[in-house]
Deep mutational scan, measured.
Amino acid sequence: MEVRTIKVFTTVDNINLHTQVVDMSMTYGQQFGPTYLDGADVTKIKPHNSHEGKTFYVLPNDDTLRVEAFEYYHTTDPSFLGRYMSALNHTKKWKYPQVNGLTSIKWADNNCYLATALLTLQQIELKFNPPALQDAYYRARAGEAANFCALILAYCNKTVGELGDVRETMSYLFQHANLDSCKRVLNVVCKTCGQQQTTLKGVEAVMYMGTLSYEQFKKGVQIPCTCGKQATKYLVQQESPFVMMSAPPAQYELKHGTFTCASEYTGNYQCGHYKHITSKETLYCIDGALLTKSSEYKGPITDVFYKENSYTTTIK
Score class of each variant (00 low, 15 high):
Arg4Asp: 08
Ile6Phe: 08
Lys7Met: 09
Lys7Thr: 10
Val8Lys: 05
Phe9Asn: 14
Thr10Gln: 12
Val12Met: 15
Val12Gln: 11
Asp13Leu: 04
Asp13Cys: 06
Ile15Gln: 09
Asn16Phe: 07
Leu17Cys: 04
His18Trp: 08
Thr19His: 09
Gln20Ile: 15
Val21Glu: 14
Val22Ser: 10
Ser25Gly: 08
Ser25Glu: 09
Met26Phe: 14
Met26Ile: 11
Tyr28Phe: 08
Gln30Trp: 11
Gln31Pro: 06
Phe32Gly: 07
Gly33Ala: 05
Thr35Arg: 05
Leu37Pro: 04
Pro47Ile: 07
His51Cys: 08
Tyr57Pro: 04
Tyr57Trp: 11
Val58Arg: 08
Val58His: 06
Leu59Phe: 15
Asn61Val: 14
Asp62Gln: 10
Thr64Ser: 14
Thr64Gln: 15
Glu68Thr: 11
Tyr72Leu: 11
His74Gly: 11
Thr75Gly: 04
Asp77Trp: 03
Leu81Met: 10
Gly82Phe: 09
Arg83Lys: 15
Arg83Ala: 10
Arg83Val: 05
Arg83Gly: 06
Tyr84Ser: 03
Met85Val: 07
Ser86Gly: 09
Ala87Asn: 08
Leu88Asn: 03
Leu88Asp: 04
Asn89Lys: 14
Asn89Glu: 13
Asn89Leu: 09
Lys93Ile: 07
Trp94Cys: 02
Tyr96His: 02
Tyr96Ile: 03
Gly101Asp: 08
Gly101Leu: 04
Leu102Gln: 05
Ser104Met: 05
Ser104Leu: 06
Ile105Asn: 02
Ala108Gly: 06
Asn111Glu: 04
Cys112His: 04
Tyr113Lys: 03
Tyr113Phe: 15
Leu114Gln: 03
Ala115Gly: 05
Ala115His: 02
Thr116Pro: 04
Ala117His: 03
Ala117Trp: 02
Ala117Thr: 08
Leu118Lys: 03
Leu119Glu: 02
Thr120Lys: 02
Thr120Asp: 03
Gln122Met: 05
Ile124Gln: 03
Ile124Gly: 04
Glu125Cys: 07
Glu125Lys: 09
Leu126Phe: 11
Phe128His: 04
Asn129His: 12
Pro131Thr: 05
Leu133Cys: 03
Leu133Phe: 04
Asp135Glu: 11
Tyr137Arg: 04
Ala140Arg: 02
Ala142Phe: 14
Ala142Ile: 12
Glu144Ser: 13
Ala146Trp: 09
Asn147Ser: 14
Phe148His: 03
Cys149Glu: 03
Ile152Tyr: 05
Leu153Arg: 02
Thr159Pro: 11
Thr159Gly: 13
Val160Arg: 02
Glu162Asn: 04
Leu163Asp: 01
Asp165Gly: 05
Val166Phe: 08
Glu168Lys: 07
Met170Trp: 02
Ser171Ala: 13
Tyr172Gln: 08
Tyr172Thr: 15
Phe174Thr: 02
His176Ser: 06
Asn178Val: 07
Leu179Glu: 04
Leu179Phe: 15
Ser181Met: 15
Cys182Glu: 02
Arg184Met: 03
Val185Gln: 07
Val185Phe: 03
Asn187Trp: 08
Val189Trp: 10
Thr192Gly: 13
Thr192Pro: 04
Gln195Leu: 13
Thr198Glu: 15
Leu200Pro: 03
Leu200Val: 14
Lys201Asp: 08
Val203Thr: 12
Val203Glu: 07
Glu204Tyr: 12
Glu204Lys: 10
Ala205His: 00
Ala205Phe: 01
Ala205Glu: 04
Tyr208Ser: 08
Tyr208Phe: 08
Tyr208His: 07
Met209Ile: 09
Leu212Asp: 01
Glu215Leu: 06
Gln222Ser: 13
Ile223Met: 12
Ile223Glu: 14
Cys227Met: 00
Lys229Pro: 01
Lys229Thr: 10
Lys229Asp: 11
Lys229Met: 07
Gln230His: 09
Gln230Thr: 11
Thr232Glu: 08
Lys233Ile: 15
Lys233Asn: 07
Leu235Thr: 02
Val236Trp: 08
Gln238Ile: 01
Ser240Asn: 01
Ser240Tyr: 00
Ser240Phe: 00
Ser240His: 04
Phe242Cys: 00
Phe242Pro: 01
Phe242Met: 01
Val243Lys: 00
Val243Phe: 03
Met245Asn: 00
Ser246Pro: 02
Pro248Thr: 08
Pro248Val: 10
Ala250Ile: 15
Lys255Thr: 10
Lys255Gly: 05
Lys255Ser: 08
His256Asp: 06
Gly257Cys: 05
Phe259His: 02
Thr260Tyr: 06
Cys261Ile: 02
Ala262Arg: 00
Tyr265His: 00
Asn268Gly: 15
Asn268Pro: 08
Tyr269Trp: 15
Tyr269Gln: 08
Lys275His: 00
Lys275Asn: 02
His276Arg: 00
Ile277Ser: 00
Ser279Lys: 00
Lys280Ala: 12
Thr282Arg: 08
Leu283Phe: 10
Tyr284Gln: 07
Cys285Phe: 07
Cys285Thr: 09
Ile286Asp: 02
Gly288Ile: 00
Ala289Gln: 10
Ala289Pro: 06
Thr292His: 11
Lys293His: 10
Ser294Tyr: 13
Glu296Gln: 13
Glu296Lys: 15
Gly299His: 01
Gly299Thr: 00
Gly299Phe: 00
Ile301Cys: 04
Lys307Trp: 06
Asn309Ala: 15
Ser310His: 08
Tyr311Ile: 12
Thr313Cys: 11
Thr314Pro: 12
